[in-house]
């Protein structure tokens, strides 16, 4: 459940240092909002999609489109009415359905949102979650915040299992409906969620004491089970990501 976004692999994107990748992710997304013209946004989005193929495999590389499709349909249906300027392209009786400005805006929004989606997909498909946390730590995320993130991931399977156990117990007693959702199903959900919450809340004092017993709050130096690689590789990857960032920002000006 908690590893669903990461795809194991040995692609170029996987090998790239996550700290440099995060820098590129931020630059890439920022570029999609800069007024460079739709052709550049489309080109950058195309690069993200092409990189997703080796990073996630051909089968998974297009899975974000499945999630994007309802929103793309909404953009196509609901954006043109807000933009009436320019040459009229489609009319129905006396109704203007699509103008040149409406078409351009629709394309810009689809390309931008697809680009953002693929930039994030690429980052999380090629970076394990533990490396994401270490990257954020490297960028200055405090220890306590990193601890909260790590512990939350530790608790998700526990609470999921608790929810299944409690709902199974309620189903056996006949107080919780299965199958189609209805009022009785929703009403039966309240005792299940109450039990899950109480069981979760009850673990807090015990876990807090256990954390203190392990040295939380002491001033002694922290150790780290996992570390990100440093040295020459990090330097090279950072230089590479800064160069790519500069190129994607400068390219539209050079072409213009």
């Amino acid at each position: 459940m908690i590893e669903s976004s990461y795809h194991e692999g040995d692609s170029f994107v996987h090998a790239f240092d996550p700290r440099a990748k995060l820098l590129l992710l931020i630059t890439g997304i920022t570029t999609l909002f800069l007024p460079f013209g739709v052709e550049f946004s489309a080109a950058y989005t195309g690069v993200f999609i092409l990189l997703a193929i080796p990073a996630a495999g051909f089968r998974h590389a297009f899975s974000p489109f499945k999630l994007l499709l309802p929103l793309i349909i909404l953009i196509i249906l609901l954006t043109p009415p807000f933009f009436r300027e320019g040459e009229v392209l489609i009319t129905y009786r006396n109704w203007i359905l699509l103008t040149e400005a409406g078409l351009m805006r629709t394309i810009v929004l689809i390309v931008r949102f697809t680009g953002i989606t693929y930039a994030f997909f690429l980052f999380f498909a090629s970076t394990p979650l533990n490396q994401v946390v270490l990257t954020l730590r490297w960028y200055g995320l405090p220890l306590n915040a990193a601890l909260i993130v790590s512990m939350s991931f530790r608790f998700i399977p526990y609470i999921t299992t608790t929810y299944h156990h409690v709902s199974d117990a309620h189903k056996l007693r006949g107080s919780y409906q299965t199958g189609m959702w209805g009022w009785s199903h929703i009403r039966g959900l309240l005792p299940v969620l109450t039990s899950v919450l109480i069981k979760s809340v009850k673990t807090i004092p015990v876990m807090a004491m256990s954390l203190e017993s392990r040295g939380f709050g002491s001033n002694s130096k922290r150790t780290s089970y996992q570390r990100l690689r440093g040295g020459r590789i990090l330097f090279t990857h950072f230089i590479f990501s800064v160069m790519i960032s500069l190129i994607i920002i400068a390219l539209p000006y050079v072409v213009a």
Binding site: L147, S152, F155, I159, W181, T203, I204, L211
Partner: peptide
């Protein structure tokens, strides 16, 4: 207990996990 930093960290972690599970798992 509730004033200790360890308690705060654990309570936030547990409730973060609860929020994530409620968002992911239970969909009407």
């Amino acid at each position: 207990i509730s004033t200790s930093p360890a308690y705060r960290i654990v309570s936030i972690s547990v409730l973060t996990a609860v929020t994530a599970v409620f968002t992911l798992l239970i969909r009407i």
